[in-house]
Structure formats: structure tokens, C-alpha cells
Write a protein that binds this DNA or RNA. Structure first.
Lengths: 128, 128
DNA sequence: AGTATATCTTCACGTCTGTGCAGGTTTCTC
DNA sequence: GAGAAACCTGCACAGACGTGAAGATATACT
């Protein structure tokens, strides 16, 4: 990599393919803060267990930890830890009823992403 | 956590809140393989730098590494590594033109997720 | 009060990930 | 061919992450 003698950082020296377009795109680009928030949300969905849990909730509406573990075919510890993450991120909401704690989706954006991605799965033949 | 004396695994012993619904939801749940694929895709978007890069490409259509680094305000190494990940995952496609390598989005699903998420950003006032 | 069930938390461990640095490759220009 | 520019790769390392074990808490039932 080449370090610019001008700026001192490893970036193309000063030639831009299209300086105007670079500025234009940079101006309309999502801010770093927005990107961090978005990435955080996508990261929630970046784990198979969490994805399945969320799809189970999308389908069932509301499920207790016990049943989530059964549906997703995993243990309660995994579910509990996943729920803590999802809860603190605002993706799900919980409600206690006796010994059971019921979870449900609580984020329209997450719900939308799941919904559309499931459709995408259905339309995908087998190419990946 | 309580280990079931029957099954030996740490799961609610045998009482289900609703056995029928559990089976029903489990039957229509995305498979583990599908969940792994989906999670892998979401994981691509689970990093602020990659998110911004992808949005830059969504906006610009095509950009060289040099300009991507300028737009996203980062160094070429980061961009290169990010592009390798995105490329091997099939999210972007590259084209060489002289000294420059141009990248563009190459995945309809990713494009859709980005598009809808940007709309979501626009509609979000400030609550997160 | 005592026990069992459901859920949560803490801790520790192995692995994955993002990052910077240094060097390598390809292409263009002189 | 020499040098510069754009891009890529390998390495090392700190930090984050997913996981399981063990114990704690909360609620129900007798």
C-alpha cells in the first residue's frame, strides 16, 4: 500500500476517478452514526439461532422461553442469552405469566426484514 | 438451570405451554440451513464500514476502491478487506479497468435490504 | 416451609472478526 | 526497464462473540 506524501494516510494520493461524484455520493451517504445503528440491527440477525428464534416469534406471535427452545431445537441457556441480546436491542418484548416468560417481536423494522427475507428464501431455487 | 431427568438435556422437562402450536411452528420454521444462509447474509451488513460501502455502491452504482475509501472516509486496506468479504459472499461484483478496480452491487436481496432500511431510517424520527 | 419448574446470570474458554502494518502484484507512464 | 499508482494479501493482535457449566432467582404447588 502506498502512503500519501501529502496527507500521510494510505489513500489514493489526490486523483479521484470522479471528484464530483465522490463528493455527491459522500454527501448523501448514511452518516456514521446511522451506519452504526443499522449494523447493530443487522448484527442481531447475524446468528442462525437468533434468526430462527425471531422467525419462530414471527410465526407464533408469542412464545415462552421453554417453547422457543423446543421449536428451535436448542437449550434454554442459548435462548436466554439470545433473548437478552434481542431484548436489550429492542427487537423483542417480554411478559411474565407465572413461571413463564413470553416473548414477542417488538420492532417493525426487524419484522419487515424477516418477512421479506423469508419471501426471498421462497423465491430462491437453489443458487447461492 | 434444571437438567431434565428424562431426556438429560437442559430443556423444559415435558410440559409445553402448547404442544400443538410448538409442533406447528416448528414445522413451518425456516430450516437450520436456511437460517445459516440468512444469518451469513445479515452478518455481511453487521459492520458499519461495510454498510456504508454498500450504501455508497447503492447510490453511485459503481465505484473504484480508491473512491470508495474517499466516500466512506476510511483507508484502502479496510475497503479491500471488506470487498473481499463482500465479493466472496456474492454481494458485489468487480471489474478491472486499468489500474482501477470497480465494484458494484450484485445481489438483489442485499440491495432490497439496504433500500428498505434506508427508508426506515428516513421514517425514524429519533427513537431507537 | 420445602420442593420442583422456568428463567436468568455469572464465569471461563475457544473461536471469530476487524484492524493496522508491511510487503507483494498489476498496470500505467515515462 | 524504472518508478509510481491502485489494489491486494499475509501476519499479528486486541477485542468481541457464541457456548456451556454451574449457580442464583422467581414462581407455583403441596
Amino acid at each position: 500500500m502506498q502512503v500519501s506524501p501529502v496527507t500521510g494516510i494510505d489513500r489514493c494520493v489526490e486523483t479521484r476517478i470522479d471528484e464530483g461524484r465522490v463528493e455527491s455520493v459522500a454527501a448523501s451517504l448514511v452518516s456514521l452514526d446511522e451506519a452504526v445503528d443499522l449494523a447493530e440491527m443487522f448484527r442481531l440477525l447475524g446468528d442462525p439461532t437468533r434468526v430462527r428464534i425471531l422467525y419462530a416469534l414471527l410465526e407464533a406471535g408469542e412464545l415462552c422461553v421453554c417453547d422457543i427452545a423446543a421449536v428451535v431445537d436448542t437449550n434454554e441457556t442459548k435462548v436466554s442469552q439470545a433473548m437478552r441480546l434481542l431484548r436489550s436491542a429492542g427487537a423483542v418484548r417480554n411478559r411474565r405469566d407465572g413461571r413463564n416468560v413470553f416473548y414477542r417481536l417488538d420492532d417493525a423494522h426487524v419484522r419487515m426484514l424477516l418477512d421479506l427475507s423469508r419471501e426471498h428464501l421462497a423465491h430462491t431455487v437453489g443458487d447461492d
